[in-house]
């Protein structure tokens, strides 16, 4: 059972109450911003599951526990399965009007947690799974994940004479999840917070499983200033490197379809993790972006 919010949530109507505070996240952390907004939108009758990762590491250190509503850490691989168990248990016990949300990072979602996520979607659990994507294993010290982009330097993909950082591209989690026939999926960015809030609220009203993939910059891992998190999170969308879209009832829908893109070079050159890239590498990133957009414009419903 879900709480149907009659009032659309925006900057004026969002609750003043905070559910995630006193934590030890780094300055400029995009992930903690995502968590804060997710919990404000979903409200106090929410069960939150977080796996081992940045958000549990910064907010769950006894006796300094930073969640004002019910929250639990799962095993790294077990976010979606623990959410499923909570949903099943709550259903069996006859609880009413609540949300079950899981908030996991990119590694916890696209790598170690993918199997459990697939199982939860398959069972059509009434849960909301949110991946905050900071594009590497940041909690353990910036190692490459399945969502680290091409070219990025991490501590396990060092940029040197022979290899220029990450040589693979991001797994496409949004389409992987959509391929399950999930009830609702969306991408978002902390740089476009109203769009993200709208999608959380929509997910909370879906009778089935929903998945939101939110782009969340990490100054510590990306080698960026702590006051440019929002700028970067906007720019990644404006450059077309991150797509804001939704999937429901078997169809993809693009939320933003810019006529022209902001220059990729500006976005890339501001980040330490891409510092070693040469013009030809940036050209390769632009080429991959254009190919993706061509595919999207040819096959997705455009808003």
């Amino acid at each position: 059972m879900s709480v149907v919010n009659k009032v659309r949530i925006n900057a004026r109507t969002i609750t003043d109450k905070e559910f995630f505070y006193g934590h030890k996240a780094c300055a400029g952390c995009g992930g903690s911003l995502a968590v804060r907004h997710i919990l404000k939108v979903l409200g106090e009758r929410t069960f939150t599951v977080l796996p081992a990762g940045c958000m549990s590491a910064v907010g769950f250190n006894f006796p300094q526990l930073c969640f004002d509503s019910n929250a639990i850490i799962s095993t790294f691989a077990g976010t979606a399965s623990m959410m499923s168990g909570i949903a099943a248990g709550a259903r069996a016990l006859g609880l009413k009007d609540y949300h079950v949300v899981g908030i996991a990072g990119d590694g916890g979602t696209a790598d170690i947690g993918l199997q459990a996520l697939s199982g939860a979607i398959d069972r059509r659990e009434k849960v909301i799974y949110i991946c905050y994507d900071n594009e590497a294993y940041m909690n353990t010290g910036i190692q490459k994940s399945g969502l680290t982009p091409f070219g990025a330097r991490t501590t396990t993909t060092p940029a040197g004479e022979n290899i220029k950082g990450t040589v693979t591209t991001k797994k496409n989690m949004f389409e992987i999840v959509a391929a399950h026939g999930i009830d609702y999926a969306a991408t978002a960015s902390v740089g476009y917070i109203q769009d993200f809030i709208n999608k959380i609220q929509k997910a909370s009203e879906v009778d089935g499983t929903s998945y939101i993939h939110v782009y969340a910059p990490c100054p510590t891992g990306w080698g960026t200033e702590t006051d440019v998190t929002i700028d970067l999170a906007k720019e990644v969308v404006d450059t077309g490197l991150w797509v804001l879209a939704e999937y429901e009832q078997g169809e993809f829908r693009l939320n933003r379809n810019p006529k022209s893109f902001a220059p990729v070079e500006n976005y890339v050159r501001r980040q330490g993790r891409f510092k070693h890239l040469e013009d030809e590498d940036i050209a390769a990133i632009v080429h991959a972006r254009d190919a993706k957009w061509e595919q999207i414009r040819n096959s997705w419903k455009l808003k």
Partner: peptide, 19 residues
């Protein structure tokens, strides 16, 4: 619950037990 692995079987059991 038709879980997809033993790891998830016990992970889900913990979630249920936690409520």
């Amino acid at each position: 619950m038709h879980v997809e692995s033993e790891h998830s079987a016990l992970s889900a059991s913990m979630g249920a037990s936690a409520v």
